[in-house]
Amino acid sequence: MEEKVDVGKVARAAKVRLDAAEAARFSWEIEGILENFQKLGEVDVEGIEPSFNPLRAKAELREDVPAPFDFDPFANARFVFKRKIVGPKVLGE
């Protein structure tokens, strides 16, 4: 069974710009991968719960006590303006 993937659309959602050659190559490769993955459909999973983690853990929740982290939040940032991290604009091209 084949799975057709609109790689251009998925790459836009994943925020990875692809040029035309890359898009064509990835389409071919990803469809090849998915073709091989179709055999997963053979496994009977009727009534089986998903395992989101390999083991069940009892959650030890954190107490609501302030524990400030001592570091310079701008040390790794290249663009900072008045203690704010500079990011791209929201609107426009």
Binding site: K15, F79, K89, E93
Partner: peptide, 23 residues
């Protein structure tokens, strides 16, 4: 492309900027 790692002066809108820097 913000806070850490590879960063450029962000000139485009966020969708473009993120896509470029990740590419």
């Amino acid at each position: 492309g913000t806070r850490f790692g590879l960063q450029r002066e962000p000139e485009q809108a966020f969708g473009e900027y993120f896509s470029e820097i990740r590419a």
